[in-house]
Write a protein that binds this DNA or RNA. Sequence first.
DNA 1: GTTTCATGTAACTAACAATGTTACATAATG
DNA 2: CATTATGTAACATTGTTAGTTACATGAAAC
Lengths: 154, 154
Amino acid sequence: MKRDSRLSGILHVLLHMAEQSGPMTSETLAAAMSTNPVVIRRIMAGLREQGYVRAERGHGGGWSLACKLETTTLRDIHDALGGSALLALGNRTESPGCLVEQAVNAALDQAFREAEQILLGRLGQISLAQLSADFHRRRVAGATPHHMESHHAA
Amino acid sequence: MKRDSRLSGILHVLLHMAEQSGPMTSETLAAAMSTNPVVIRRIMAGLREQGYVRAERGHGGGWSLACKLETTTLRDIHDALGGSALLALGNRTESPGCLVEQAVNAALDQAFREAEQILLGRLGQISLAQLSADFHRRRVAGATPHHMESHHAA
DNA sequence: GTTTCATGTAACTAACAATGTTACATAATG
DNA sequence: CATTATGTAACATTGTTAGTTACATGAAAC
């Protein structure tokens, strides 16, 4: 089962945007995620609708952050992305007539729901500011200046 | 993201096997999971290798349980199925050079690992016997006799 | 005002993974 | 030895996701 890495990818570009004063184009961001600009726009659309980022057209346009890093959590971003399923496992049938399967579903559902709540809770406790702070710690520790271009393929 | 329902499906057939004295053929089990006999054999292969079920060929052959319901947990079954990924989310790159992405990965990895541990732990606490007991409770509550055939399409 | 540069979005294509199917070998039983 | 079952490889089908093309819209530069 292939894992959905949109959250990981978009957090990556959001933090790059946080390091930047002006707006960044879809093309630039796409390079950082080694993907296509249209894919960026597609994913960012959800964030724009929720007001986490702003898009400006034309010359000098592009994407910029429109939220406070301190109060925006990874869960917010996940939700803005569409809040897709967190678990790779699921029940075969949702409301089966078979009592055996009902028993199986009941047990699995409970376990699944619990794990989902834990994960959502965790994501809700991590702010973009924390990630940014962690990045700055790493940069200081490594003592290398940060240039986006130097870390991603052109 | 489509969810993997093999665990759900195979637990279903295992409990049906528990209700049966003799072996059950792949064809019969496939009917209960509304799938193909070969799919059953494919999935059951892992369980056979781990000794949870036994397969006998030829006349009167088929699948039968070879484990104690009390000591076999849902986690055992999950592992025997290949222990596939539990989460639908993942990181874009495993060991990125970009410090920003390292910070993102570190945070997500921790949250993911925690949720996975919770789920595995839960699955490890539920035995096949518990599911079976729950089924029997449901059967008594509903006061309807149980015939596998009557609950699944032919 | 027209050229350029950007996003917005629909439609299409490609790639991939999971499932289903066919075919045939192997083994056990009557 | 005919029948019935599993074992397994090979192939086909299906469905989802990501990638791409194409073009409309809007904003700034000139």
